[in-house]
Design a protein around this nucleic acid. Sequence first.
DNA 1: GAGTCCACTGTAAGCGCTTCCGGTAGGTGT
DNA 2: ACACCTACCGGAAGCGCTTACAGTGGACTC
Lengths: 332, 332
Amino acid sequence: MTIYEVAQRVGVSIATVSRALRSSGEVAGETRRRVLEVVEELQFRPSRLGQSLAEGRHAANGIVFPDLSGPYYAEVILGYEEVAAELGSSVLILATHGRTDPGRKVLDLARRVDGMAIMGRTVSDGVVAQVAATGMPTVLLARPPVGELDTVTTDSDASARELIAHLLAHGYRRFAYLGDPDESSDVTARYDAFRAALVDRGVRPPRAPMRCAFDVPAGQEAALRALAGSPRPQALVCANDEVALGALAAAEQLGLSVPEDVAIVGWDDVMAARYAGLTTVRQPMRELGATAARWLQDRVANSHLPVRREVLRTQLVIRTSCGQHPIEMEVP
Amino acid sequence: MTIYEVAQRVGVSIATVSRALRSSGEVAGETRRRVLEVVEELQFRPSRLGQSLAEGRHAANGIVFPDLSGPYYAEVILGYEEVAAELGSSVLILATHGRTDPGRKVLDLARRVDGMAIMGRTVSDGVVAQVAATGMPTVLLARPPVGELDTVTTDSDASARELIAHLLAHGYRRFAYLGDPDESSDVTARYDAFRAALVDRGVRPPRAPMRCAFDVPAGQEAALRALAGSPRPQALVCANDEVALGALAAAEQLGLSVPEDVAIVGWDDVMAARYAGLTTVRQPMRELGATAARWLQDRVANSHLPVRREVLRTQLVIRTSCGQHPIEMEVP
DNA sequence: GAGTCCACTGTAAGCGCTTCCGGTAGGTGT
DNA sequence: ACACCTACCGGAAGCGCTTACAGTGGACTC
């Protein structure tokens, strides 16, 4: 079922069929009608491959992310897909987590899209540079800039500063940080911002982070270690909400009450955070994805736009886990 | 940068370059070496479009789902992507929620993939049939079967039966159901199973479901309506966890305690459910996606396999919201 | 009534690859 | 020394579309 059969059936050339179908060029009304009639009858749909090859574009964008397990990435991807679809692009996804040779997978993906968004520390700077070097329009998401690439991140600095100010106001002075800053680039920024905020206020930051993976059990385990320290930290600042939720479990396990015995705060404001009463930093995840999709589209259309950088605002969400406050029963 | 340039540079034909690159056909070791050397030097990557056109396959699969907002779909997609990538396929995603003319979007997607998974009530049976009629290998997910298509679902019946048995054991007899069974096909199954389970046990099911969208605010609003009924229902069975979380908020708003004044149960076991103490039904979401990807691959490889149907097992997770039980502090 | 235009349509050249088929050269057997 | 393989390679035909360019015929003008 190709354009040839349609053309033959109608008794015109394939050029005319193509024109009738895409309303490009001049086609007599009657001819168009006949073509569309046969198209309908044969249920003909032009091959995307043929089109793409001829047009020299895929009409598709890719997004690379570490994982989809937390709610965080899902939201970003949804924002991305929404805008991309609106702009007429299909979306290809690639999760790198746990894959062997993610760099190769990314390069592979690059062969099937017009542009791609790369999120977090999914692949090395080298791979990013390699992708960009092919002329592929690329936007970086929640990741430090590489070269002259568009980059959109969220504001770890401001939120960390605000978070710390709040915790200091509660009177806490001994902090621990849970999470591995080397594992994820946005988390690196969070950790750095956390330290900087403490130093700014004249408080000595913890010697080192309590490294752990970004899930609940790892957070729990790390919190157990942290809480075993002497003197016990007064506040656990966690790299993300999953880790913080693990920390809550750890506190309960140790018979410590939150926030009386220890304060715990997270980052991201995932849905569970609300029900756990977790103080956290809300990230504009949807907007992150949407921005990436929009920028990508712009850059695909016009490759020599000036480089864009944007830092999206975050919001401190105060619940009960950081100290005596009324439960916030907000409706999302 | 095409295969022609590589061929010219090496001084061989494009056929030889192609063969060297894909290790098909016979190429002298020395020739292959020279080809690969130039390929490396020029950083040549064959055009995926050219390849696909020549091979007659996309090496990509698509997945259609309603939304990505809840944790439920994200998990399914992750399971799907993981297996698909392993099998060498790229993954295209399409969220239909809130889109105009999802049918068209699905048909569009169908032009760029070798097979597709369609989830829930994203598009009408007609569109599904239309896709299938093109010969596109298709797998249905959490959705009633259409024609002779492979279908994988989760076991609403068994879980509903178990859930109802448990609630009856608590002594509840007046139930309300929250959620719109017409909105999502897996939820239709849940509602039907819920009613059937009650009838089986000789209890009269509610006249009608308390219809609402599948998010927290809608659940809250619906629960307010349900709890205003007289006599007040003793147990609210919710279409999914988000609705149930909303119901918890509603109970709190009305000054009712859970489970003393009213029991509330959900469906899916999203992360927040654990922290809300919500009794719910755990769904094997990851496995759902993975199964779809695997079946699709099989069917792409061999189009006349027998039709496959599978119902994945679910698991009742009892926490506190349904009645007096110790809090389950399971580690995922 | 010849020349001009215009509206429409067809021809054909790509787009970048895979692969069938046939050709060549060197090696082997007798 | 001749036929015959075998290993390797190139030519060329697709795959299904878009679009620049070149007609072609009828309506219109002077």
